[in-house]
Amino acid sequence: MTSAYGDGMRNEVSAEGSAFATLLRDARRNRGETQDDVILATGVSRSTYLRWEAGGVDSPNLKQVRDVCRFLGIHPGHAGIALGLMSREDLGLSPEPFDPVVVKAGTILADENQPARARAALRKALQAALDMWRAAADLPEPKEPRGADLMPRRRNIR
């Protein structure tokens, strides 16, 4: 898609740009900071920071990335991962255990600052999706554990 400024400017967001934008937004919101707080504290230009939070990160200045990460309490390695500069394995971290969509849904459900109505709607949507998936995959409804299922199992160690 071209912008109103001509063919030279594109409004495309890469997967890395989206991941970095989410990392910044979530950290900023969790700290209760505004975009202006980040801009003033780090000296990153307004247009640059707003572009980063919108997912536009073609060639970010790594010193600026580091400064923003320090202010927001983000480990710079996580920014490097989000930007596609390195992998979790490069940093000696285990692979992400859950799909980012699942992590995001869990974060929203656990966030008491989210309106109760919004969290209830997400739960309902997730339950409907699970029900559809079970029906499509022809899987039985999982049973709730009872009695002996709740007892820790002993291992025979010789």
Results as ranks from 00 to 15, higher is better:
Thr2Val: 06
Ser3Ala: 07
Ala4Arg: 13
Ala4Cys: 00
Tyr5Phe: 02
Gly6Ile: 05
Gly8Phe: 07
Gly8Met: 01
Gly8Glu: 14
Gly8Cys: 09
Arg10Gln: 12
Val13Phe: 06
Ser14Arg: 03
Ser14Asn: 13
Ala15Gln: 13
Glu16Cys: 02
Glu16Met: 00
Ser18Glu: 11
Ala21Met: 09
Ala21Asn: 08
Ala21Trp: 02
Thr22Ile: 08
Leu23Ala: 05
Leu23Asn: 04
Leu23Val: 08
Leu24Phe: 11
Arg25Tyr: 07
Arg28Leu: 02
Arg28Ala: 12
Asn30Ala: 11
Asn30Lys: 14
Gly32Phe: 08
Glu33Thr: 06
Glu33Cys: 02
Gln35Pro: 01
Leu40Glu: 14
Leu40Gly: 04
Ala41Glu: 11
Thr42Gln: 00
Gly43Cys: 14
Gly43Ala: 05
Val44Gln: 11
Ser45Pro: 03
Ser47Glu: 00
Thr48Cys: 15
Thr48Gly: 10
Thr48Phe: 01
Tyr49Ile: 00
Arg51Val: 10
Arg51Gln: 03
Trp52Ile: 00
Glu53Cys: 03
Glu53Arg: 05
Ala54Thr: 04
Ala54Phe: 00
Ala54Val: 06
Gly55Arg: 03
Gly56Glu: 08
Lys63Gln: 14
Lys63Asn: 15
Lys63Cys: 06
Gln64Ile: 11
Val65Asp: 04
Val65Ser: 12
Val68Ile: 15
Arg70Val: 05
Arg70Ile: 14
Leu72Val: 07
Leu72Met: 07
His75Val: 14
Ala79Trp: 12
Ala79Gln: 10
Ala79Phe: 09
Gly80Glu: 11
Gly80Ser: 09
Ile81Ala: 11
Ala82Thr: 02
Ala82Tyr: 12
Leu85Lys: 12
Leu85Met: 10
Ser87Trp: 01
Leu93Cys: 01
Ser94Asp: 15
Pro95Lys: 09
Glu96Trp: 04
Pro97Asn: 03
Pro97Tyr: 10
Phe98Gln: 13
Asp99Lys: 05
Pro100Phe: 02
Pro100Asp: 07
Ala105Cys: 12
Ile108Cys: 10
Leu109Trp: 09
Asn113Gln: 04
Gln114Asp: 09
Ala118Trp: 09
Ala120Ile: 04
Ala120Asp: 15
Ala120Lys: 02
Ala120Val: 07
Ala121Gln: 15
Leu122Met: 08
Leu122Cys: 08
Arg123Ile: 01
Arg123Pro: 02
Ala125Pro: 08
Leu126Glu: 04
Leu126Gly: 07
Gln127Glu: 15
Ala129Asn: 13
Leu130Val: 12
Leu130Met: 13
Trp133Tyr: 14
Ala135Thr: 08
Ala136Ile: 03
Ala137Asn: 07
Ala137Gly: 13
Asp138Asn: 07
Leu139Ile: 10
Pro140Val: 04
Glu144Gln: 14
Arg146Phe: 06
Met151Cys: 00
Arg153Phe: 14
Ile157Trp: 06
Arg158Lys: 01
